[in-house]
Amino acid sequence: MKIVVPVKRVVDYNIKPRVKADGSGVETTGVKMSMNPFDEIAVEEAVRLKEKGVASEVVVVSIGVQQAQDTLRTAMAMGADRAILVLSEESPEPLAVAKVLKAINEKEQPGLFILGKQAIDDDMNATGQMLAGLLGWGQGTFAGKVEVADGRVKVSREIDGGTEDVSLALPAVVTADLRLNEPRYASLPNIMKARKKPTETLKAEDLGVDMTRRLTVVSVAEPQQRQAGVKVGSVGELVEKLRNEAKVI
């Protein structure tokens, strides 16, 4: 079975994003970019499935600008076998990404797509679900555990207040949550070897996908600063306020 893992190049999770002064977006030029952390988890899971003998090949795909090549290299250094770079604008919308991935599916015919549950830049949390919808496949979103057996994949999903197990027919789409695994480091020898692994470069339009945005950004602003509240004199007063004013206890 082949596994395809889409990976996104995003502003590194250590960087505090800065809203541009003109409100047109978040500053990304000259900012450190890295692989979306949830995508790292997805790559790790795919590589583990290959190491267990469940998967035969792991293909990583990134859709975006040329520099996404670095992200693909990192994924290959973690153990992915080869990469596909689909050139488009930076950070395309989930709908367009899902359509590109659907086209990749026709080309690659994988048994499983594993995606990160969301990208930490636009926080959409949609691509995996949308891809599954377009393909008519089952979706195991927010996965905390993945087991492949007997032509099905069993996914333990993180839901409000617990977990839910679902069983999906293969092929299927899985999206990785934080606790699925702890991704490995891309070691230096593996990074060096990854330079020799193949990357195929395509253009979104060659795949026949319309990348036109459906959402236009009107403005981006920093959230309002929290204001200091009141100091209370006693525990009794605090409890009274929490009960009757804030109504949280």
Binding site: V11, D121, D122
Partner: peptide, 14 residues
């Protein structure tokens, strides 16, 4: 919210 709530985006849908 985007960027884990570090920014608020106003978007218009077509």
């Amino acid at each position: 919210p985007i960027y884990a709530g570090n920014a608020l985006a106003t978007v218009r849908s077509s």
